[in-house]
Simulated scan of single mutants.
Amino acid sequence: MANSPFLESIRHVMRTKHYSIQTEKTYLLWIKRFILFNQKRHPKDLGEQEVTQFLTHLAVNRKVTSSTQNLALCAIVFMYKHIFERELTLLPDAIRARAPTRVPTVLSHKEALSIIGLMKPKYKLMFSVLYGSGLRKAELLKLRIKDIDFDAKNLFVFRGKGGKDRTTMLPNKLLKPLQTQVEKVRAIHTKDIAEGNGMTSLPPSLARKYPHAVREFKWQYLFPSTTRCEHPYDGYFCRHHLHSTALARELKVAVKSSGVAKHVTAHTFRHSFATQLLMAGADIRTVQELLGHNDLRTTQIYTHVIGQHSSGVISPFDID
């Protein structure tokens, strides 16, 4: 099924709609699983009943989380809407996975700096940006030279989660390290050009609109990969951004060495950015804009994290 013409047709539609590579892989994986669950019957011969059974199977037998079940549903809905031009109406007897109410793990300022301080220089800068600017990991990796405004002390996030653009703050302490990083990228780019390359990876739509941008310095990634690779859509050899697994490896080692007894991911630094701002008295609407949240309720989860620190409430055990 790996070379299935049907799956390739879905891939083609997703690329014409400029979905990310990661979304493409994930959607195709869930569509493949849906087909296999139904004994490889063609999806055009299936409908609401089969989709309901598949979702129930995921919740009851596979015990997936609600977000995983919703992701599978989104993939299937995409297939029926854009391939078969058919809207699904889910049956009410589908068992949906419960979404647990979670409070995000956050680091104190001291813990965040202790972990970052144990990293190699390149990763130290990357995690400093995560913590200092509140970026998501994917947003950090996709930063390009043009996205840094040293004069205004801003970072421009192009097509963040949900396809939204936004700006966020750039800490004063990171200005010089980032300027140094820009010069390192310039040296890499100059060497690539001398070797007859110098191209970065661009979305197909941008590459067609700005054909010369692919070799321009301002479009180079701020944290480029150490090697060049083939562009997944257009086939030219280019220098992509650093892979996310490199960050995960560095973080795992640093957390272990720091002795911080918390489950820490790259996203934990974004959570910590938000809570530190709120504890310092920042307006929650401002924090919402910096994080790029659509709904204020998403940002309000951090008020549960800071709890007593925001209201002045103390435990009766601490009363003299």
Rank of each mutant, 00 (worst) to 15 (best):
V157C: 01
L118A: 04
P177L: 01
F158L: 00
P177K: 01
G196N: 06
T190K: 15
K146G: 02
K142T: 13
T180N: 15
N154T: 11
L141V: 13
I116R: 07
R186A: 12
I115P: 08
E139P: 08
L178I: 11
P177D: 03
F127H: 01
L143P: 10
K124D: 09
P171T: 04
G134M: 05
V129T: 13
D192M: 10
L141S: 08
R166N: 14
L140C: 05
G160P: 00
E111H: 07
P177Q: 05
L170T: 05
R136A: 01
Q179T: 07
L141Y: 09
P121K: 14
V185F: 02
M169Y: 11
K142M: 03
L170R: 15
R144Y: 04
G163K: 10
N154R: 13
I145H: 11
K122N: 04
T167V: 15
L130I: 04
L118I: 06
E195N: 12
F156D: 06
V182H: 07
I193R: 14
S114P: 01
L130N: 08
V185E: 03
Q179S: 13
I145R: 14
K184N: 15
L178A: 01
T168Q: 13
M126D: 05
K110L: 12
I188E: 12
T167F: 12
V185K: 09
S133W: 05
I145T: 12
K164E: 11
K142F: 01
E111I: 01
I116S: 02
R159C: 06
A194E: 12
K176G: 02
G160A: 00
K122R: 15
V182G: 07
K124M: 08
I115W: 02
A152P: 04
D192Q: 07
V129N: 06
